[in-house]
Nucleic acid binder design. Structure first.
Lengths: 239, 239
DNA sequence: GGCGATTTGTCCGTATGTATA
DNA sequence: CTATACATACGGACAAATCGC
C-alpha cells in the first residue's frame, strides 16, 4: 500500500506518459485522455495525475486548455544558426516540406541604417521581400528580407516563382553565401503577427537579424525573422 | 517650404535624435524634451514629432510613459555566443562591472535527462548553482547551472567566494573549456523571474541552454540562462 | 445563439511518511 | 525523543472555459 520506491507516484506517471509520447502512442496535437480517465487508469487520485501533467506542461511537453482537454505539444524544431543558414535546408532536415507564403514584394529606397549594413549609398534601391515560412502547413516564422536591387536586377521575378532564397540567388550568379553575423532577441507577437503565425498575441517570438554575404564579404541580404517560439529552438553548434 | 528630398520630415527627425543618443547627448534612462519642446525646436507640428518618437519607440530606442515623458531605453548589450561563453568576459567587454547574486547552491541526485547530458549515471550527485547575473547593478539574467559533483568535490565552497564560473573551474584544474552546443528559445517571464530581473511578468525572456565541455569533450556543466530580452541581444559571429 | 454536459482550474480540507532541528 | 516543516497523496466542491446539439 505504502510507496516503497523513492520516486513519487506522480513522477513515474509523468515518465510513463512521456514514454508513450516518445514512442508515438500519442502524437503532437493529440488529446490525452481526461484527467479522470488517467486517474482511473493509474489507480490514483485526480490530483496526482494533475501533478504529473503539470510537471510535463512546465517542460512544454503538454498544454492544457480548460474545458477542452490536455494536448501534446509539438516539439520545437531545431533550427541551426551557423555559417550557412537556409530555411529550406533546415526544414528539409526535419523531414517536413518547407514552404513560403509571399506577403509583400516591393522596391523602395533604403534608409541610413540599411545602407550601412548592406554597404550601399543612402537612398539606393532595395528589394523588400516579406512573407511567411511554413513547415508543412504550420507557420514557423514571419520574415522581412532586404536585397540591394542594383546588384540583383531580376530578383523580384525569380522570387515570385522560386520560393527559396538560396535558389533565387543561384539564378543571379551567387553560388554560395555565408552568414556574417546573427543577432537574436525576443519580442512579443503583435496581433497581426499572431494571426499570420496562428498563435496568440503576446506569445513569445524569437527575432533573428542576420546579414548574408558573398564569400568575399560583400553583403547581399539583410534578413529579419520572427520565429514562433513554441515551434522553433535556434541552435548554435560548435563548428 | 515643400519637402524637396524624398525622406519624410519625421524620419529625419528620428535620425537626428538617434544620432544624438548615439553620440551621448542623451543617455540611457534620460528623459527627452517634451513633445512640445521638440516640436518647436524642429519647427514642426507636435504630431510630426510624435511620428518620429513612435517610430523610435517601436524599435525599442525610446519608451514613453504617459504623464511622465519620453525616456531613452538602454540599448541591449550584445552577448556573444560562441566557442567560449563567459558571462564575466562578455560583460567586461561592455565596460561594465559583472556581478553575481547567489540564490541557491545545493547538491541533489540527477534525473535521467541530466544524466544523459552530463554523461553520468542516473542518480549521481550534481551541484545546482542558481543565481542572478548583473551588469553593474541592473540584473541581466537568471541562471541555473548543474555540475557533476563527483568530478568537482570543492566546487561548492569555491563558488561561494568566487563569483565567476570560469575562475572556479580554474581552481578545480579546468584551465579551459568550450561550449559544445547552445539552444535558444523564448519564454515569458514568470512573476518570480520578473521580480528578480526587475521587469514585468509576461515580458519576453531569451532562454539559452548550453553544455560546456573540457577540450576533450567531457561535459562539465549544463547551464540554463533566462536573459531579460530588453537588456540583452545574443549574437552569433562567424568563427 | 442558447443550453447543458464535459473538462480543466482552483480552492477547501485530511492524512501520512520523511527529513531536520 | 519530540516538535516542526515539507512533500506526497487522497477526497470533495465549485468556478470557468469549451464543445456539441
Amino acid at each position: 500500500m505504502t510507496q516503497s520506491a523513492r520516486t513519487p507516484v506522480w513522477k513515474s506517471i509523468a515518465e510513463t506518459l512521456e514514454n508513450e509520447i516518445e514512442h508515438g502512442h500519442y502524437r503532437a496535437g493529440d488529446k490525452l485522455p481526461t484527467e479522470a480517465e488517467l486517474a482511473s487508469r493509474f489507480g490514483v487520485n485526480r490530483h496526482t495525475v494533475r501533478r504529473a501533467l503539470g510537471d510535463m506542461a512546465e517542460r512544454n511537453i503538454l498544454r492544457s486548455r480548460r474545458g477542452a482537454g490536455v494536448f501534446v505539444e509539438s516539439a520545437p524544431t531545431d533550427y541551426p544558426i551557423g555559417k550557412r543558414v537556409s530555411f529550406t535546408q533546415n526544414i528539409q532536415a526535419t523531414g517536413r516540406l518547407p514552404n513560403k507564403q509571399l506577403l509583400r514584394l516591393e522596391e523602395r529606397s533604403c534608409d541610413s541604417s540599411e545602407a550601412k549594413v548592406l554597404d550601399i549609398p543612402i537612398g539606393a534601391p532595395v528589394l523588400v521581400y516579406e512573407g511567411l515560412s511554413l513547415s508543412g502547413d504550420t507557420p514557423i516564422a514571419h520574415f522581412v528580407s532586404i536585397f540591394p536591387s542594383e546588384r540583383f536586377p531580376h530578383m523580384s521575378e525569380i522570387l515570385k516563382t522560386v520560393s527559396s532564397v538560396t535558389e533565387t540567388l543561384k539564378h543571379q550568379g551567387i553560388d554560395d553565401y555565408v552568414r556574417r553575423d546573427t543577432r537574436i532577441t525576443a519580442e512579443l507577437a503583435t496581433p497581426v503577427q499572431a494571426l499570420h503565425l496562428r498563435i496568440r498575441a503576446g506569445d513569445p517570438l524569437l527575432k533573428s537579424v542576420g546579414v548574408n554575404t558573398t564569400l568575399d564579404g560583400t553583403p547581399i541580404e539583410q534578413g529579419q525573422t520572427w520565429f514562433a517560439a513554441e515551434r522553433v529552438a535556434l541552435t548554435v553548434a560548435r563548428d
